[in-house]
Design a protein around this nucleic acid. Structure first.
Lengths: 359, 359
DNA sequence: TACAATAACATGTACGTACAAGTTAAAGGC
DNA sequence: GCCTTTAACTTGTACGTACATGTTATTGTA
């Protein structure tokens, strides 16, 4: 009939102390019961209490001062010492400075510190960072998934993170098999909108070029094919190019070049992002063709300053700052108990400039 | 004659294990001597060994697996999990995005994570962050001092940080009473250069306006007064305005306005930074005067995009990205044992645009 | 009243013991 | 030869004791 103490005694003490702190019975800076007090209260040895106190110290909930006692280091909505980790694929580049600065402004205002790291879209590095973040006692993570269209090999790690009570907000993309708060851009709709625009202008031979190791690319391609299908003029297979992180700096140029040299030359390109569009523009230029006179081009993300490019690129707006800020606000809301699992999908918006013409 | 074991036994064990790890006797993933082994080797109790192991676990040097043993978690030039904290006064604004992105690029390339926080120039917040950074097991700190011209109340904390073996690199300013690596800009020379330029143009009534709770401001003012003195035309006291963080958004305008309304109106302004210069330009404009026809203005930091302002401001270049990058490189060099205490002072450079004229 | 010694109480370090729980490899039986 | 059992070894939890060290309030003395 012995059920047995499945819960270790030390765990009992820890739970009790957490209760004292989190339920405001002992507020920040106040003294906790002494080791001796808890010894008697729980009928455990001093070592056990010390063990529990030690672990709570590592967690940052309490601190000790020899001779004086043990004190609460816990502030409701602690602020100022809590860390939110931000794991993205790239930090520099075009889209991310905007997102990061959006996140930073909110977190900084709210008194959180921000732990930045980037994976360069390598899944192993994501795993490594998730692990080390676990060791560093963060309270929340804002994650832009790495190679999000592939299998989610880090699901186990994410589960551990959730079990530890660490809040997560996904940005740009999320995993199907991991439920979480997120802030996304409706990339299917974005791809649809961009392609539709070209169709409305009278284009029929519209090439699409997508980076498909990220979910964003898969979705944008989905929107592209949906739009073509709805127009009953499905683009032939050779008009779609797929690339990934490994060949992102040469594939778009090469693919565009080969299409332009072919006999059934496309009259328009829809590109995964502006960076890709720049390479396509270069290929067009190198073939002695002009934009928009000969070829129309649509980009995505609105990440290139119109000043810096001679061609004013028609593109889809990516609300970088706003999305970063919202992700951060979601995070703070969750940390401070004002939200459970907020989710939001931004609407994409077409920005018409001067890289497309009617035919 | 009892000298006594000034070094606790647990500390001995910790030192021994650290030696095993750092001197490559036990490499990453390999098994350490068991608790029992160390018990016998050091003639201490198992509790003592366990205590030591526990602390090393918190430091992230080792990890345990029940039934298997204790293993090394230490990689030489660990990378990828180590954190460098960056504490600045402001994150948004004009100068800092450049510095931060300079730091970020290097740290990210070298595989470090970056912990960002900003103090808004409040010393208490600096103290708070230094404390919490200590709790979070970082390996290095890049610090832009808060209110650096005032007393260094956080010296004790900084000493604790040094004793823990955490590397520090100061940027923009450093404390006289805390020796450390640093990357600075020669602000005395910068102030001198700017003032000299105005003197060469024939100006004699040159107003100076400085934010003097930061060392940068004190130094720029120093350069200003030095230059005037060398010209034997010391500016009268009323031509120098000093402000601080509290009134940084209104003082420059008010001060410039009062000087412009006075009888001995200055013919030129040297401003602490471009942000300050913008307010002075506004004041000049509001008095119905023109730059550079009526009044010449020199700024500092080159932080305002020439596109965004109608007046092309002559200013001193602040090598933001380069300084950030160098600070990060110094940090990495120190962490990986390639440097001891690197220090560098950047030379300021005058950028002549169109906000000054010869008289 | 002011100051110093002291007692009471807090955490820190260290010893020893016992048993639980998980892992691994050797011993034993089929 | 293969599988199971067992023994040996690892870390985890928990008890109890002793003395060291630091803080605070009380007590006693000048």
């Amino acid at each position: 009939m012995k059920i047995g103490p499945n819960i270790p005694k030390g765990e009992m003490v820890k739970r009790y102390v957490r209760h004292l702190l989190k339920d405001d019975i002992i507020t920040y800076g106040e003294k906790l019961p002494s080791e001796h007090d808890l010894m008697e209260k729980f009928q455990v040895s001093r070592q056990t209490v010390r063990q529990a106190f030690g672990e709570l110290t590592v967690e940052g909930l309490i601190y000790k001062e020899q001779g004086k006692g043990t004190f609460s280091n816990y502030r409701k909505g602690a602020k100022g010492s809590q860390i939110v980790a931000v794991v993205t694929t790239y930090l520099s580049g075009f889209v991310f400075p905007g997102i990061i600065s959006g996140i930073e402004q909110i977190l900084s205002d709210e008194g959180y510190m921000m732990l930045l790291s980037n994976t360069n879209n390598i899944k192993e590095r994501e795993a490594q960072y998730l692990k080390s973040v676990l060791e560093h006692n963060v309270v929340g993570m804002i994650i832009e998934p790495t190679s999000s269209s592939g299998p989610n090999i880090n699901n186990r790690l994410l589960s551990v993170i959730r079990e530890k009570g660490i809040k997560t907000v996904f940005i740009n993309a999320c995993y199907d098999d991991f439920d979480s708060a997120y802030v996304l851009l409706d990339d299917i709709k974005g791809g649809h909108t961009a392609t539709d625009y070209l169709l409305q202008l009278g284009h029929t031979r519209i090439a699409g070029i997508f980076k498909t190791d990220d979910k964003q690319g898969v979705n944008r391609m989905q929107g592209y094919t949906d739009a073509l299908r709805a127009y009953e003029s499905a683009g032939s297979q050779t008009m779609v190019g797929e690339y990934d992180t490994a060949n992102m700096y040469d594939y778009p140029y090469m693919f565009a070049q080969s299409l332009l040299r072919g006999k059934e030359r496309p009259t328009a390109f829809f590109c995964y992002n502006d960076q890709c569009a720049l390479m396509v523009l270069q290929a067009i230029h190198d073939q002695g063709l002009k934009v928009p006179e000969d070829i129309s081009v649509v980009g995505y993300d609105d990440s290139i300053s119109p000043m810096n490019s001679e061609v004013k690129l028609t593109t889809i707006r990516h609300p970088k700052q706003a999305m970063g800020g919202q992700a951060a606000r979601f995070m703070v809301d969750m940390l401070e108990g004002r939200a459970e699992k907020p989710q939001y999908i931004h609407e994409p918006e077409l920005i018409v400039r001067k890289s497309c013409r009617k035919i």
